[in-house]
Design a protein around this nucleic acid. Structure first.
Lengths: 198, 198
DNA sequence: ACCTGAACACCGTTCAAGT
DNA sequence: ACCTGAACACCGTTCAAGT
C-alpha cells in the first residue's frame, strides 16, 4: 500500500484509539493498538516518538476536563472541585493511573491544571512555602485513591470469611468495601481541615 | 550441571536478590535476576510460580517491619506510627509501589498489618462501617505519597524557570519540592482530624 | 528434586524499501 | 510524507532432558 493519498493516522486518532483500548482491555500495547487502527505497528512511529508519548497524549486529552478557577468560590470549594474533577477522571479510566505515574508530566494542559490550583492557593493567601506542600499532599491523596480503585477491593475479598476486625467491618458494611467514594470524601475533608490550620 | 547436591536456590534467596535488584536498578526482570543469582532463568520457576509471586514475597518480607499495636498508645498515635512505618518502608524502596499496586495482597504478614490497624480503630470505638472507610483513606494517602516520590519531583523541575504560581512557590521554597516529608505530615494530620470528627 | 537450554508467544523500536 | 515488512533486543513462561 505504501503512502496513501490521504493519511490514515494522526496523533489524535492514535491517542483516542489508545484510550479506548486501555479502557476496554486494561492494557495498552502497540500490537493491539495497531490492529485496532487497521494499520501496521511501525506506522504509528511516524506520528509519535514512542509509547510514552501516547500515554502523555491521553493525559493531555483527559486534563481538558479540569475546571478552570471560579473567582466566586472559596478556596475550599475550589480545592474540592479540583480534587473531585481529578478523581472523576481517574474513576472513568482506572487503568491509567499506573501509566501516568511512571512518566513525568510534560504537556501544557496538565501543567496548567496544577498551576490553576497553585494560583487559587496563592490568592487565598497561603504562604509560598506551603503551596508545594499542599499540592503534593492533595495530589498524593487523589492519586492514591485512584490506585486503590483497582487494588484494594480485591484485598477486602480475602477478609470476608474470617473472624478478624476487617472481616467484621466488612460484614457490617459490605457496601463500604466497594464504595471508595466515602473514603475519598473523608480524606478530602481532612486535607482541607489541615490546610485551614496553616 | 543438572541437579546440584545441595540446592542453589530457595524462595528466600530469590526474593532477597529480587529486592536488591529492584532497589539498585529500578526494575525487576527475570533475566537480570537469574544473572545475579548465577543461575539459568528457568531455574527460578522451580521455586516460585511466577514473577508476581516474587513481588508478593518482597511485600511479605517488608511487611515484617510494621509495628505491632501498643495498648499504651492512643489510637491517634497508633495511626501515626502505622502510617509512618508504611511510608518509611516505601521510601526505602520507591520503585516497588507500582509493583505492589498491580497485584492483590495475598500474604499473611501484610494482611496482619492491616488487621492490626483495624483492631486499633475497633477498640477505639469506631463504628464498624467507618473502619473500612478510614483504612481506605489512610492507605490511599500513604500509597499516593509513595507514588509521588518518583513522579512529582520531575514535574516541579519543569516549573522552576517560569513565572507562574508554581514557579514562584518553588523559588520561595526550593527545598519543598524535594521534601515530600512535610506534605506527608500535613496530610496525615488532616486525616487524623477527619477521623476524630467521626 | 533441581538445574539447564531450547522454544514459544509476547513486547517496544528501528530501518530500508516502497509510493 | 506516510505506510509496510523484516529485523532486533528485550520480556515472562513452559518443557523435555539431564542428574
Amino acid at each position: 500500500m505504501a503512502r496513501p493519498r490521504t493519511p490514515i493516522l494522526s496523533q489524535d486518532r492514535i491517542v483516542t484509539a489508545a484510550l479506548e483500548l486501555i479502557d476496554e482491555t486494561g492494557t495498552l500495547t502497540l500490537p493491539l493498538l495497531a490492529r485496532r487502527l487497521g494499520v501496521s505497528m511501525s506506522s504509528i512511529y511516524h506520528h509519535v516518538a514512542n509509547r510514552a508519548e501516547i500515554v502523555e497524549g491521553i493525559r493531555e486529552l483527559l486534563s481538558r476536563d479540569f475546571p478552570r478557577p471560579d473567582p466566586s468560590l472559596s478556596w475550599q470549594d475550589e480545592v474540592r472541585r479540583w480534587m473531585r474533577a481529578y478523581r472523576r477522571i481517574m474513576v472513568a479510566h482506572p487503568h491509567l493511573i499506573v501509566e501516568f505515574s511512571i512518566n513525568p508530566v510534560t504537556n501544557e494542559t496538565t501543567l496548567r491544571a496544577y498551576e490553576d490550583l497553585a494560583e487559587v492557593l496563592e490568592s487565598a493567601g497561603f504562604a509560598l512555602e506551603t503551596i508545594l506542600e499542599a499540592i503534593t499532599a492533595l495530589d498524593s491523596f487523589v492519586c492514591g485513591s485512584a490506585l486503590e480503585l483497582t487494588a484494594l477491593e480485591q484485598m477486602w475479598a480475602s477478609y470476608a470469611d474470617r473472624d478478624l476486625a476487617l472481616g467484621r467491618a466488612q460484614r457490617a458494611a459490605p457496601w463500604a468495601a466497594h464504595s471508595p467514594e466515602a473514603a475519598f470524601e473523608l480524606g478530602l475533608t481532612g486535607l482541607i481541615l489541615a490546610l485551614e490550620r496553616l
